[in-house]
Amino acid sequence: MNNEADVKLNHQKIHSRKVGMYVCLILLALVSFAPFYLMLTNATRSTGDIVSGFSFFPGNNIAQNFREIQQRVDVIAAFKNSLIISGFSTLLTCYFSALTAYGFVAYDFRGKGVIFTILLVIMMIPGQVSIVGFYKMCKGLNMVNTFWPLILPSISSATTVFFIKQYAETALSRSAIESARIDGASEFMIFNRIGLPMLSPAIFTMGITGFIASWNNYMMPLILLSDPKKFTLPLIIRALNADAQDRTVGGMYLAIAISVVPIMIVFFMFSRYIIDGVNAGGDKG
């Protein structure tokens, strides 16, 4: 009898502990998501509404907010610029990182170990340290206010190479490469036809993270782009945020939402792949 009651009590204790745990977990999820929710609702409310009181419900002022903001800065052009830079960066990162990783795995050449160690060291170099030299170099090459210095460096992304190489070590089938070689295919054709498809899961994961990183890039565009026509979304947000006189709060929220929502969509579509890529290393937080 006594024993049975004990077990029952114990069950209850475990049960209430579980409930408490779920409450905490859900509260934390709300803390993580609430700012985005408020961003979305406020993007649809008029500045007057937002300033006069706080509400969880969306309004119907989104078109007006957009017009207000578009008058001050060109959001559409900034969106396009961000998309061009991130898109081309992603393509280059994917192709050339796979090429490099394949080179390390499919071939045995002299000095490979040393060269790979150099790559690991490159992975650790902080980008912000050389901004002065980077800027001066781009100025000398007439690349200031162009997208080239924001796109081309994507060809040498050490973190991406590292991740794809790790994957390639198990996924690359040497016998398929060998038989294609016997069939007379050239080495680059083998890579394009056989290597790339085999590596595509890893390329895909790194492609998503690469796209997001490029979309969020702030410091390099800040240094290199001074022409408002070339601004990316983060630069637009900065300009609006700094402009304290004429505050259209609703428009400000909308501009922030425009820069954030594409990332949220990409994330909710591919969150599994993205979280897989977190442990790729060199992910600074």
Binding site: W215, N216, P234, V260, F267
Partner: peptide, 8 residues
């Protein structure tokens, strides 16, 4: 939140 533009 880690993925969203720090600027935004």
């Amino acid at each position: 939140p880690r993925l969203v533009t720090a600027v935004s």
